[in-house]
């Protein structure tokens, strides 16, 4: 199932699109001992969705998307632990605003460049923020991490419980909203326009699109979404560590999205699910094999299956193929 958007596509929600939500709710009732993993997966799906917007649809390659995720996580944590504001939505709004601001500012600066330079700039920006978080111990806790994050009961009624039930449902609700927005965006004229930029920037210029500003716009939106995902992570863990920033979380996220399939909306769902569950099963017992496996898989995906898991499903089940779309998504 491809989700390319555009003017010839039927944008109504088809039944398979409800499956992830049914699966999530089923998981909630059937696997209560895995709820914290579940919440982590939901958060990463939101994060991957934000990356898919800029990478899969607008074609911006970045190694620094963790900058926004990490900033959101830290801002939410600081608002709670240092300012004493425990309202979940205020924390999230602060995180979203900070990430959005960073996205707009850095986007305005770096999106004039391309290729390796762009890649380096994104990497340098997340590295800088990592360095700040590491050194500003009074604010962030430095290498020890920021603890003492308190989140008041959501809407005054739902307390974060030890078993992570509230956290899971809270993440699920936020992800649902994020998905709804992302899906709207992808099928809208704006989404079609982004696909146009990815497909042929030269032509977009020639039909009068101020490409640079459009990219800054979508970059900012994506940063907001990543910031919200970061805030969710802080709120569910009630802790922030340095591992939310820098190259590694960016690379990991990229891997998840690639495994799932880029530019397909649901690649951002399948990727984190597969990656994080496999990691949970394998990584602790056999860390070497885990890295080996991920590495080999990545090489294999690049060489043989550019569309990721969803791409393979498309290939093997040739029904319901819209006329055109994400063929070029893995460029």
């Amino acid at each position: 199932m491809m989700h390319g958007g555009g003017y010839t596509v039927d944008a109504r929600i088809r039944w398979p699109e409800w499956l992830p939500w049914i699966a999530a709710l089923a998981g909630f009732f059937l696997l209560p001992e895995y709820l914290s993993l579940g919440a982590r997966i939901l958060i990463y799906i939101l994060f991957a969705l934000s990356l898919d917007l800029i990478l899969g649809y607008a074609g911006i390659i970045t190694l620094g998307h963790s900058a926004f995720f990490g900033l959101g996580a830290y801002v939410a944590g600081i608002v709670s632990a240092k300012l004493g504001i425990t309202d979940a939505f205020v924390q999230m709004a602060a995180a979203a605003a900070a990430a959005g601001l960073l996205g707009a500012l850095t986007g305005a600066v770096i999106l004039r460049t391309r290729a390796l330079t762009l890649l380096m700039l994104t990497l340098a920006i997340t590295s800088i923020i990592l360095e700040i978080a590491n050194k500003a111990t009074w604010l962030t806790g430095g290498a020890d991490g920021l603890s003492g994050v308190v989140v008041a009961p959501i809407l005054g009624a739902f307390r974060f419980d030890l078993f992570g039930r509230t956290a899971f449902l809270y993440c699920l609700a936020v992800l649902f909203l994020g998905w709804l927005l992302a899906r709207r965006l992808i099928y809208s004229p704006f989404g079609a326009m982004l696909t146009g930029i990815r497909e042929n920037t030269q032509r977009m210029h020639a039909i009068g699109a101020p490409v640079y500003w459009r990219l800054v716009g979508v970059y900012t939106l994506s940063a907001v979404m990543a910031g919200v995902a970061g805030a969710l992570l802080t709120q569910t863990n009630q802790f922030v560590g340095l591992n939310v920033l820098g190259f590694e979380p960016s690379g990991e996220l990229l891997v998840m999205l690639i495994l799932g399939g880029v530019g397909r909306l649901y690649g951002a769902f399948i990727g984190p699910v597969a990656y994080l569950i496999a990691q949970d099963l394998l990584a602790k017992q056999f860390p070497e094999y885990w890295y080996l496996g991920i590495g080999l898989l990545l090489v294999a995906v690049v060489l043989f299956a550019r569309g990721g898991i969803l791409g393979l499903i498309d290939k093997w089940m040739p029904f319901s193929k819209p006329a055109a779309s994400a063929k070029a998504s893995a460029r």
Binding site: E288, I294, G295, V302, A330
Partner: peptide, 16 residues
């Protein structure tokens, strides 16, 4: 993108 991902994959393999 393909080159970036491919070489990240190589890093994983080599590290493992």
């Amino acid at each position: 993108l393909a080159q970036v991902l491919f070489t990240i994959g190589l890093i994983f393999v080599a590290a493992a």
